[in-house]
Each structure stands twice: as C-alpha cells, then as structure tokens.
C-alpha cells in the first residue's frame, strides 16, 4: 500500500485486456469493471490493437498458434510500457498465463512464436517481462479488503451470495505459480478472493460446494443439453445453499449460467430464481454506483427487483 490514498502503487495503473467477450455478451462486465476502477481511483489503459486470445477453440487445433496470439498481446503491453496486464475474463487470463508458462518452459513454442512474430513483422515477446493478473487480483491487491470496506457507501448486507469461479481461473495449477503460496495468496482448490472482496462489501457468502465445478461452457454449442444439466445443477445447488445471487467473474460462465437458466425452464421445465451478477456489478453498487452504471439492465438475469428490495442500485 502506498501513500495517503491507500492504493498499492504497483496496480494503480495497469494495462487492460478486455478480450472479445467483454465487447459482446460480457459487455456489462466491461462496463462494471471500468466503473469500479474509476470509483476506486485506479487507471486501466486498454491495449492498443489487441487481438483475440483464441478462446477455447484455437488451442484444440493448434496450441502454439494460440500461444502466439497471447504472446502478441503481452508484447503490446510491454511496448506500451506496462509490467502488468489485467484480464477480467477467465479464458483470456488463462491463455495469457499459459502463454507465459509455455514460452518460459518450451523451446519449441518459443521458436514457433518467434517465427510467427517475424512473419507478422513484429519482435517476439520474451517471457518474464509482463505479469498477468485477473480483475480479482487487481482490486484485491490495489485496494485491499480494508481499503474496500472503508470505501463502501451502500453495504451489500443481507445479500446472500454463492461465489462461482468456474474451472479456468485455477486450472491447470502449474500456470499459476503465485497461487497456493499460503496465507494471503489465492487457492486453486478453494479460491476465495471474490468471497473476500464481497464480504468486505458487506455481503454474506454462503458455502457453495461447486465454486470451481465445470459449467459445460465448451459444450454449449456441441451438446446444449449437457451444458443445461450442469448449469441447472449449479443453480439448484446455489439455491439449496440459500443464495439470492450467484456472483461471477468470467463472461463465459456468466452468459452460460444466464442462458441455460432460461433454457432449463424451457426444455426441462425446471425454473430457478437465483440471480446472476458479475462481482464487479455488486462491488460497484456497494461503492455507491447505480445499477444502470454497472450495467445490471444488460444482464439476461433480471436482478433489478431483488436489488431494489435490498436498497441497492
């Protein structure tokens, strides 16, 4: 922590890689992330001319090409003078971390990335120059739980939240060397950063045993029923745990939960009522921002009545 502001100077200003989803289905996540950053006095500088990270698809065909895509984004961050890039999407975050790991440990990957970079007329990214963080790391490290607690203007008190991290935030373990480092670090088998931040904002986190379980996101198009069944189990379990809201930190998980909640009602006749909100939307409202400012109206899962009833937004 630094100076009078209580903001860690390390993360006061970071490079921002929103990724494709945040310009489409995850627009509310983009909007709320930027709004929270501004409210906290943090600067996000979007990468210039960034490209898609390849999401889940490119690696199934050509993993080294996928590494090149992420390496290019890391190089852009470096050329813009940043040592840290923040990616709020689990897929982007995972791919940037994986690129960093593969470039540091696999000479063949390095060779391919250098060759592709040269063909594109660029200098290849060399590992170790830029570190990748998630939006959860960013807020937690820059502001801290105490700092956040001090800034809360509209407590989330009374709101019961199941925190859902999805499977890519912590998996595979070896690409996240900073995790599982004891007290204060994130855990790969029981992540808690989102729980910590929302608790600091006054929310009551429920015990949710499926916080890192698969949502079937990758099967959404190839086998929608599998995805719907998995999501339905996530939703019914959250309700059984007493949650009013499932908090998310990934646009793919978020839209999967929203879409399959609607599909489960239509196809399987099972209606669930738990609301789905990005953690940045919840934090934003706790910081005194309006529901509209953090894009609650953009969500498919309409939480406006619940939020109004709790005096939020």
């Amino acid at each position: 922590m630094s100076e009078k502001s209580g903001i860690s100077s390390k993360y006061r200003k970071v490079a921002y890689y929103p990724g494709c989803a945040l310009e489409g289905t995850g627009h509310a996540y983009n909007r709320s992330t930027k709004a929270v950053g501004k409210a906290l006095g943090l600067d996000l500088v979007e990468l210039k001319n960034w490209n898609c990270c390849g999401a889940m698809e490119v690696k199934n065909i050509d993993p080294k090409l996928q590494t090149f895509l992420s390496a290019r984004n890391l190089k852009i961050a470096e050329e813009m003078g940043f040592a840290t890039v923040m990616a709020p999407c689990n897929g982007c975050y995972h791919n940037l971390k994986k690129a960093e790991y593969d470039l540091a440990h696999d000479p063949a990957t390095r060779e391919t990335v250098e060759m592709l970079s040269a063909k594109a007329g660029d200098v290849a990214y060399q590992p170790g120059h830029v570190s990748t963080i998630h939006a959860l790391d960013w807020i937690r490290e820059a502001i801290g739980e105490e700092g956040l607690r001090a800034r809360v203007r509209n407590s989330l008190k009374g709101l019961k939240i199941a925190n859902y991290y999805g499977c890519m935030y912590t998996r595979p373990r070896h690409i996240f060397p900073e995790k599982d480092q004891g007290p204060g670090s994130e855990s790969t088998n029981a992540p808690h950063f989102m729980d910590d931040l929302l608790a600091a904002a006054g929310a009551e986190n429920v015990e949710y045993p499926l916080k890192t379980a698969c949502c079937g996101g990758a099967h959404t198009l190839s086998d929608s029923n599998t995805s719907t069944r998995l999501v339905l189990n996530l939703l019914t379990t959250a309700e059984a745990c007493g949650a009013d809201v499932i908090a998310t930190e990934c646009p793919t998980c978020h839209s999967g939960l929203e879409l399959h909640q609607a599909r489960a009602a239509k196809v399987f006749g099972t209606v669930t009522h738990v609301k789905i909100l990005y953690f940045t939307q919840l934090l934003g409202m706790a910081l005194g921002l309006s529901a509209r400012r953090v894009g609650v109206h953009e969500n498919l899962s309409d939480a406006r009545d619940l939020l109004r009833a709790r005096g939020l937004g």
Binding site: M56, K59, N60, D62, P63, G91, H94, C167, P172, A218
Partner: peptide
Amino acid sequence: EFCCSARDLR
C-alpha cells in the same frame, strides 16, 4: 474434446 483444457485434436 472441445473442453477448455483439452489437448489438440490433431
């Protein structure tokens, strides 16, 4: 395997 951490098909 069209999973998030699947190995490449080829």
